[in-house]
Design a protein around this nucleic acid. Structure first.
Length: 334
DNA sequence: AATGGACTCAACCGCTCTTAC
DNA sequence: GGTAAGAGCGGTTGAGTCCAT
């Protein structure tokens, strides 16, 4: 009944691999291939679990692996694919020859997440943080909206402090809203990638509640309007022209841009072009493209009868598709 | 030079799905 | 059909290294 155990757990070595172990494993696999990981450590003379051997081979020893730094185009691909499939590292790795899921996961967690956060973009939703504010604004009464900026500033201060002090902050806990676009993606085999949304909306709701609470507090502290408020007018603009949320977002970071028309576009200084976002709609120049339209359609479908659309004129239509995934990237996934 | 915090990344853990028995 | 190991995957850990003070 069942299979025999892959190894005797008491008799296996763990931890870092030595060059001798690497040589033994590589030599054995070169000669016999990678069939039956259970037998490989035994036959190769290694005191390792078969699973450990498999990981060592697939993540490090395979001759077709790249070990150097990630190129800019590789980073673009990772971010773009992540915006579509989320933390499905094996799917992303499949689009990057020579890179393993572990490599990509590590690179994302140590570098790319911080880069995006530094640009004012939530690495989970791939939307500007300011879009969250715009979404909240749609649910607030006008007197509360006047205090939104102040309240949100308080709630985002941890992120700002992180950027300034490089202290670790778990962004995912505070910004776990998921782009509506995720739901529409099909994975190999035709399964929708919608499981990625499971459990994430709670975190975003928590953030929204947090900001709303701050709004209430701010209103209690200010019987009269703030000295410098940005009351949003009926057309979505503030009295001094501030358009809702993010005309200043995200900040430009040298050599790292993020944007809709970026991938493979000629004439762009960098593939990291950022979309110009007003906090309500994108003006990044690709609003007519199919993907963006799809994104807006998806958003409309999920706005629960227009919850996200503040007015008929749509000043606070909150979707802003940041990535224009090229067909050659999307096709293998869809 | 010493120290402590931040960062990186290989390796492990634990879960799910598949497959052999 | 039930059981348990194999395989694959994403999340987490911790040793080593870097860097600022």
């Amino acid at each position: 009944m069942g299979r025999i155990p892959c190894c005797e757990k008491d008799n296996v070595k763990r931890g870092q691999w030595t060059p001798e172990e690497d040589n033994k494993l590589s030599a054995y696999i070169a000669q016999h291939g990678t069939r039956n990981w259970r037998l490989i450590p035994k036959n190769a003379g290694l005191q390792r679990c078969g699973k450990s051997c498999r990981l060592r081979w697939t993540n490090y020893l395979r001759p077709d692996l790249k070990h150097g730094e990630f190129s800019e185009s590789e980073e673009q691909t990772i971010v773009k694919l992540h915006s579509v499939v989320g933390n499905r590292w094996s799917l992303i790795a499949a689009q990057l020859p020579g890179r393993t899921d572990n490599d990509i996961k590590n690179h994302w967690n140590t570098k790319l997440k911080k880069k995006l956060s530094g640009m004012g973009i939530d690495p989970v939703t791939h939307k500007p943080f300011s879009h969250l504010m715009a979404e909240i604004a749609t649910t607030l009464a006008p007197p509360q909206v006047a205090h939104l900026t102040e309240a949100a500033l308080g709630c985002f201060k941890d992120e700002m402090l992180h950027l300034l002090t490089k202290k670790r902050v778990d962004f995912q806990l505070q910004h776990s809203g998921i782009s509506p676009g995720y739901d529409a993606v099909l994975l190999p085999g035709g399964n929708p990638a919608n499981t990625y949304n499971a459990g994430k909306s709670d975190d975003r709701d928590e953030t929204i509640q947090k900001i709303k609470l701050s709004v209430s507090r701010a209103m209690q502290e200010h019987d009269k309007p703030l000295a410098k408020t940005w009351p949003i007018t009926s057309n979505g603009e503030t009295s001094d022209g501030f358009t809702g949320a993010c005309t200043a977002f995200p900040p430009t970071i040298s050599g790292f841009q993020y944007g809709p028309s970026s991938y493979g576009n000629e004439g762009d200084a960098s593939p990291w072009n950022q979309s110009i976002c007003t906090g309500s709609t994108c003006t990044g120049g690709n609003q007519q493209d199919g993907l963006h339209e799809k994104g807006e359609d998806r958003d409309r479908e999920e706005t629960d009868g227009g919850k996200n659309e503040r007015t008929k004129s749509g000043e606070f239509a909150t979707d802003c598709v940041l990535w224009d995934l090229s067909n050659d990237l999307i096709n293998p996934i869809v």
